[in-house]
């Protein structure tokens, strides 16, 4: 069970804007990059000297992709944190640096740069057209489906869902670039969360993905969520996508990428907080299962905190229960009073 660590979630830091799918790169901008490089290290030769130290492999069995093929050549420049330029059209900083550590812990760690960035990077400065290569997660994964040594998960289903999502249909990222996989998922640091990640951390990592862009939600009364009591408590306990994806055809461990806008999303408290709630079973089973996996039998039973307020609520049973218990209390109270009076009468007569 892969848990909530959906294949497209990530555990690394915030993704570099558009990392991996750079927008058009005007020659002017490239010249600026060159300038930044020179300022940063003084002499180009120093980069070469620093290089072996910077890309030393971690010694894992598959070997780092950053030491394969021509990757070392790429990393001569791209290891630098300041590797960036300001896009002349959008005025946004485009980060071109590769965090070596994050990459080597990512799911793509054994891929050499050229396995994705195949065309036109042999020469420096890179040609403008090479940045237009239009890399996509789905395309690359499809292309390598038949490869014996790598078998990337098929993302076609996610793509169909994504095409119907509010992100594909309406989103206008601040960066001005078109919305794509890379708006949320950084292929240079992406990795599924390990199975033993505690539920609150899975929730936090999933939700951080949304909150990285939706900064407007970082407010005491988050925009669009005015109806939601204790928004922070909710966000710590459930994933944004638990409400913001369609109920139909859900797969617990491959969350839908059909993200819904405010109008279509679940705003009905009782979907989770009542006996018949459609979301309830999913959430409860999911959380209980997750915790069980992580903690073992007894610890799971003791620390099980999958209970959702209201899940056992049944107004009918509660009303009947309250009435019966209430009547019983009245009954025994009356009985007690009767006994007391009888006792008094008996003593008076003696």
């Amino acid at each position: 069970m892969n848990g909530m660590s959906n294949p497209l979630s990530r555990a690394g830091g915030p993704p570099a804007p558009n990392a991996g799918a750079s927008p058009p790169t005007p020659t002017k901008s490239l010249a600026l990059v060159h300038l930044v490089l020179l300022l940063f290290i003084g002499l180009p030769g120093a980069v070469v000297g620093a290089q072996p130290q910077q890309v030393a492999p971690h010694g894992d069995a598959g070997g780092s992709g950053l030491t394969k093929g021509d990757s070392a050549e790429c990393m001569r420049c791209h290891w630098m944190e300041t590797m960036a330029y300001r896009d002349s059209e959008t005025r946004q900083i485009v980060d071109l640096s590769i965090d070596r550590d994050a990459y080597e812990h990512s799911v793509h760690h054994d891929l050499a740069c050229s396995e994705c960035h195949a065309r036109g990077y042999r020469h420096y400065p890179h040609r403008t057209s090479s940045a237009d290569e239009g890399l996509t997660c789905v395309g690359c994964h499809e292309e390598h489906q038949g490869d014996a040594d790598v078998s990337p998960p098929d993302l076609a289903g996610f793509d169909i869902q994504y095409q119907h999502s509010v992100h594909a249909l309406e989103a206008k990222p601040e960066s001005g670039a078109a919305f794509s996989c890379f708006s949320c998922h950084n292929p240079h640091s992406f990795r599924p969360l390990p199975d033993d990640t505690p539920v609150p951390e899975v929730v936090a990592a999933n939700n951080q993905l949304c909150l990285d862009c939706h900064t407007e939600l970082d407010a005491p009364v988050p925009k669009g969520h005015e109806w939601l009591p204790r928004p922070r408590q909710h966000w710590g306990a459930v994933r944004c996508l638990d409400c913001h994806t369609p109920l139909e055809g859900r797969h617990l461990y491959a969350p839908s990428h059909q993200l819904l806008g405010a109008a279509e999303s679940n705003q009905n408290c009782v979907e989770c907080h009542s006996q018949g709630g459609e979301l309830l079973s999913q959430l409860y089973v999911h959380r209980a299962g997750e915790e069980r996996e992580q903690q073992g039998f007894l610890a799971h039973a003791v620390y099980n905190d999958a209970y959702i307020i209201g899940m056992s609520r049944s107004p009918t049973i509660d009303r009947i229960g309250l009435a019966v218990v209430g009547l019983m209390i009245l009954g025994v109270a009356a009985h007690g009073v009767g006994r007391y009076l009888a006792h008094k009468r008996k003593r008076a007569s003696q």
């Binding site: 006996q275 056992s312 049944s314 049973i317 229960g321 218990v325 025994v332």
Partner: peptide, 23 residues
């Protein structure tokens, strides 16, 4: 749904147990 059945059974039994305690 299993959880609903379990939840309702637990709730109903708990009410009955409360009734027993009162008596």
């Amino acid at each position: 749904g299993s959880i609903w059945v379990v939840a309702m059974a637990h709730l109903l039994l708990a009410w009955m147990m409360l009734l027993f305690i009162v008596v």
